[in-house]
Write a protein that binds this DNA or RNA. Sequence first.
DNA 1: ATAGCTTACCCACTATTACCCATAATATAT
DNA 2: ATATATTATGGGTAATAGTGGGTAAGCTAT
Lengths: 154, 154
Amino acid sequence: MTINQDTFTGEFSFTIDAKGRVNIPAKFRQSLAPENDQTFVITRGMDPCIWVYPLTAWQIIEDDLKDLSAISGINRSFIRNTVRYASSVTFDKQGRIMLSTNLLEYSHLKKDALIIGMVNKIEIWDPSILAKVDQQNLKMDSSEYDELADKIIL
Amino acid sequence: MTINQDTFTGEFSFTIDAKGRVNIPAKFRQSLAPENDQTFVITRGMDPCIWVYPLTAWQIIEDDLKDLSAISGINRSFIRNTVRYASSVTFDKQGRIMLSTNLLEYSHLKKDALIIGMVNKIEIWDPSILAKVDQQNLKMDSSEYDELADKIIL
DNA sequence: ATAGCTTACCCACTATTACCCATAATATAT
DNA sequence: ATATATTATGGGTAATAGTGGGTAAGCTAT
């Protein structure tokens, strides 16, 4: 069965060990295209979570960043803040990646991690933080949410 | 593991020792293409920080400068100010480079250094200076920043 | 030339990381 | 069901990374 390469769906619970390692769900590892050399790029999400990109997807972002002129200060700030927290990680023989303390603190992750497929990327959340953020978004923009559902859900 | 050569991402904290040496993060040293002969070119950044180029990337800049006509005074000034503060540095067996007092003063670096991958170059910042500059840029042009994010982030 | 300073090269220590093996639980196959 | 493979998790250890410092060679200026 050939699952769509580099697309991720579903939710998985994992534990972060004392060394800061988490397992990437086997399903996600298998749908990672071979060109990625078993490596992801992890970085800060726009929400307080960790974003995980297939290497090749991240390289597209990098290529776009290279095209931005360095003359503009705002461009430089944007490149810095986009790239700053990103690091490429290859998973070990057990399928785990290492998370930096920086990213762990940013996402408030401690022991339990919720790993969620977001189609073209993966998110790693602390369960309680996710609940809070989602609840807040829905409270603020529930009508917008419904419009989206109306447009997209079959 | 074949990471993109001569591209740098991520943030690293280092200390500048009494002799003015800083370590180049191992990850950056490894992604430096062999043609560079373990040497970078360091110079003043457009922000108050140090810019670090792979040698071959800097040589492209020099080639472009050669093509500028020397008839024009503005050309001569541009060439002068671009090249003036640049010097090539090879890292030692421990992976460190030496920073000139000139560059240290320009970037207000004292003991702590934040080394940031900027895709095709590297920046060395004093942490407190970086915070100030970034904050100022974002305050001034936050809408421009959001536009960039919308265009580039996957 | 020589004193004084700077630079390049060498060695040493410590903490972190990468790599390996082990186990328990789950899934797959015969 | 029983055997076999695959997952998720824990932990040990050797290699590496980052940091500090010593010393000899090279410059600079008198």
